[in-house]
Design a protein around this nucleic acid. Structure first.
Lengths: 167, 167
DNA sequence: ATAAACTTTCAGTAATTATTGAAAGTTTAA
DNA sequence: TTAAACTTTCAATAATTACTGAAAGTTTAT
């Protein structure tokens, strides 16, 4: 497999993976492109490489910046803006986990808490609703807390010690 | 908040959460409904409760069964089929994590491995592609392995000890 | 102040994904 | 074996989501 094919395969795969962690294809592809680029890219570069429109590129870059994954880079002597992405995978994972937690998990936890806190009127169905949503609330909260803590660890050595524990 | 409102809120929230962990709204809603039901439900029950068509109900129940989250239940004296979902959240989480790993994460890991294994032609851009996809490959593989191991633990006490480690 | 170089916005359109409903298929009881 | 009770399939359609391109907006150099 040559460079070109490998690159396209990576961008394509990352793009379709994007949809599953809640961001759209173009957004994931732009990030992928920047991730393997040796230097910051401008809008023209991205449009041309991914064959997408100016508007699409602009909007998705904006979103990536909102997530905190992509930053503007000023290149002296150049008028236009350049973009680059976080290059450290550990840090990238940390940012993504944090944002997803904030945007998606936390609101769900809030609803689960509210729903599981309704007054027990004694009926079987109310008891079941309370019991099940409470269980889900605990699980979701624990999982969320754990992921956040795990991601906050700067080094990978921790992962190793968690692994050992899980033998 | 009364039972009815709480139930609707739970089903609605779970449904929209569904889209983000890769299953569609109806599928997630059916699962939510079964999850808080005190007894197995038949197709009519589900259709009526969620206001969705027979075809939709049938197809999504099928998918839920493919995932291994929902099972058919035979009720003696009844001709039609009834359905119920896994009621233990721990087990539910385990099934979902396993399936997602198998369906989505594993294929990505495979591509990352292939892409990161291309021949180094000495150029800077090839070196960068290899370096970055290799880092992503390692991270994804570690995270996947860890989640699978965590989920395999039957008890919750383990989570507590992992938490301690992460203080 | 002007105009060139560049970016953003957004209404319209295209692409994708979910849903319906009716016909075809299956099972069971008599 | 027939027909009623039930489930599945799938082509048509609806709903949602993504993308385009051109106009409006912004910045910078002169």
């Amino acid at each position: 497999m040559e460079y070109k094919e490998a690159k396209d395969r990576f961008i394509g795969t990352w793009g379709s993976l994007g949809t599953l962690w809640g961001i759209n294809k173009a957004m994931a592809q732009i990030q992928a492109l920047l991730f393997i680029s040796t230097k910051p890219l401008c809008m023209e570069d991205i449009m041309e490489e991914l064959k997408i429109s100016r508007g699409n590129t602009s909007m998705n870059l904006r979103q990536l910046m909102d997530w905190g994954i992509v930053t503007k880079v000023l290149i002296s002597g150049e008028r236009k803006e350049f973009f680059s992405t976080e290059k450290d995978v550990q840090e990238l994972a940390r940012i993504i986990a944090k944002e997803r937690s904030r945007r998606e998990i936390k609101p769900v936890i809030k609803v689960l808490k509210e729903v599981s806190s309704i007054k027990d009127d004694g009926s079987e169905k109310t008891k079941e609703l309370i019991k099940q949503t409470k269980a889900l609330h605990n699980l979701t909260q624990d999982a969320d807390a754990m992921i956040n803590k795990l991601m906050d660890q700067k080094q990978n050595w921790l992962t190793k010690s968690v692994f050992k524990l899980l033998k």
